[in-house]
Structures are given as C-alpha cells and as structure tokens.
Design a protein around this nucleic acid. Structure first.
Lengths: 174, 174
DNA sequence: TCGACCATGTAAACTGTTACATGATTGT
DNA sequence: ACAATCATGTAACAGTTTACATGGTCGA
C-alpha cells in the first residue's frame, strides 16, 4: 500500500477519539493490531512531526513543563482531511472497495453515522460479488490441474471467506 | 513482510514447474494474483539478475541468438534452497504459521506430497485456533464500547473467516 | 503501417523494519 | 537500588511503487 500514506490516516482516526501521545498510539496498535495494523516507534514519531508541520495536529498545551511527553490533538484542518479521506471510496461512481481500504475506514466508525456505514457496506458487498464471480471462474480452470492442488485450496478458502463476508454485511445492511 | 525476500521464493517456486522468462513470471502474477501476490517488472528483472549471480537460476541455452529473450531455469542449488524454505515453518517446535506464509507455501503444492501438506494444514489449524481464542476475548471487551462499533464488526468478520478456514482445513486433513 | 503486445531494464521516491541511542518515572 | 515501563527519537537498510526509457514481433 505504498504512496497512500496509511499511517497518517490511522493516526488522524485515533486522534478523533481523544488526544494521544506517540507512545499511546503505539500501545493502541499493539492492542488492536490483530484485526488491523502495526507500526514501530521509528515510523510513528517522524510521522507525528511531519503531521505537526503540515498543521494536521497540534501539541496539547500542558502545564507539565518538566516532562518530554508530547500529547497531540487534531487541528480543524486535520479533522477535515480525515473526513475527506473517509468519504473518498464513495466519491467515484463505478468504484470498488478493496478489503484493506474497507477495514481501515470501518475501524473508526461508531453508531453515529449509520448512513455512511451502510454506503460503505453496500460498496464492499458489490466489490465482493465481483471478486466471487472471478474466483468461481478460476476454480473451474484449476480443477483440471492436479499439479496446482494447493492453489485450488487457496481459491476455495478465498471463496468461502468472501461469501461469509457478503452474508455478514448483508445482515448488517438490513 | 520485509526482509523475508518473498519475491525470490515465489520465483523459485514458479520455476519448479517449468522454465520461464521474466515476462512470463509477470503474466503468471497477473493471472493468479487475486489469491496470491503481485510484482512489477521493475522488481522482477533486477531480482532475476541477483538470483542469477547467486547461482539460484541459470539461463536456458537457446539456439535463438537473435532475440533478447532470457529464459531461466532452476539450478540444483536453487531447487535445494526452495525445498528448505518450504519446510522452514515446520522445523521449529512450538512454532506458528501466519496466513501469508501459509498461503505462499500452499500455492506451490500439488498432490505429490500429502504428508507435507497435512503437516502444513495441521500447523495452520493450530495457529488459527490460538487466534480465534484471542479474538473471542477482544470481542467481549469491545461490545461495551459503542464508539468502536466498526471494530466490533471487523472482529466478527475475522472470527467468521478463521472459523471457516479451520473447518475447511480439517476437512482436508481427514 | 500501425497498434497491441512482447521483452528488458534504470532511476527516483516512498514505505516499512531493524538496530541503535538516550533518559525519566514508578513500583518493589 | 533495581527492573519494568514510559517516552522520544536517528540511521541504515530492505522492499515496493511509479515514472521513464528502449526496442522487437505479429497480425489486421
């Protein structure tokens, strides 16, 4: 996922909830990473400084002067950039939504915006159905090749996963 | 998956089937990528030259001198390196096998080595069960946080996927 | 002859990982 | 006093993507 600057948007997303330090952000990654993402300090701290320079975040003023701790909060600009990024996949007509971009956005949603959630789920279901059609086709091709038995198992796994996802999101859309 | 030099092993794996050019390898990626992997020419060609220098592959002698086409085949050394890489996750006791490393190895298996396939599947099932336990726990935590509704959905999706995988691999183990 | 596809590469920029470096705070 | 954890960073390296560059072959 090069060039998409994912880390920046994850940090923005985490800061929409509450102000955090770089250390807090790393803790959150370690706790939630299984379904999500991870990044080392050496990536987080430089990114925070870049974001500070770009006016996406600002230092939370603190009376505690004798500590090196830096707590960051979103600026108005940062909040706007994050909202635009959230909406991005829904902007283009005829668009699709891959799993990473879907998961990334879903992660930050609560119960507050059910319409947006439904749009996101609907677009993902549409994309999944396209992928399922393609995989069904690939399966018919590979069954004649016993030397690609491993690949056949992978396709079956992917099909089962995607069908399970469609079922889950459709349930949520009701 | 940095540092693990995945591309090298994928190329070795593809060449176990038959000799290929860099262009052929790219074609294979494009065709099989959905369940698998992708890489641009700018990554493939330099990698092939590195592998040639390391005696993992060699140029297939061809009478066709007036073409720039380069067809590569595995050397004995390359074949050995690939076999060692395949077995790697099974070597350590108390090891686990993440999805990427599992899929990567599974992709190259045919019907020829059912024992190895079963060992691989068994290790993956073991790992999946550990991950499922962890996700069940995270789910009990997140249900009290309506502001993390999106994350709750992600955990549910991951749980459904992993349980589906366990079912599929256990069926294959019988 | 012209466009699609075959065929191989280099350069620059970006993303991500590992190793290294430093020092403060908190609990036992 | 000592260990664990809090807290912030730099440097070097590895992997990946995008843009650029070049030329051959084959069918309509």
């Amino acid at each position: 996922m090069a060039r998409s600057n994912t880390l920046k948007y994850i940090i923005l997303g985490l800061l929409t909830r509450k102000p955090l330090t770089g250390y807090d952000i790393k803790q959150t990654f370690d706790k939630e990473k299984a379904e999500f993402w991870t990044a080392p300090f050496s990536q987080i701290y430089p990114e925070l400084n870049r974001m500070l320079n770009n006016d996406l975040i600002s230092l939370l003023p603190t009376s505690d002067t004798n500590t090196r701790k830096k707590t960051y909060q979103l600026t108005a600009h940062g909040r706007e950039v994050f909202q635009n990024w959230l909406q991005l996949p829904l902007a283009a007509s005829e668009s699709t939504l891959d799993n990473d971009n879907f998961i990334l956005r879903l992660h930050f949603l609560g119960h507050t915006d059910p319409t947006f959630l439904k749009n996101l789920l609907a677009l993902r279901v549409k994309t999944l159905n396209l992928e399922i059609t393609q995989l069904e086709f690939e399966l018919t091709e590979v069954v004649n090749h016993p030397e690609q038995y491993g690949r056949e198992l992978i396709i079956k796994k992917e099909l089962a996963n995607k069908k399970s996802d469609v079922k889950l999101w459709k349930k949520e859309l009701k």
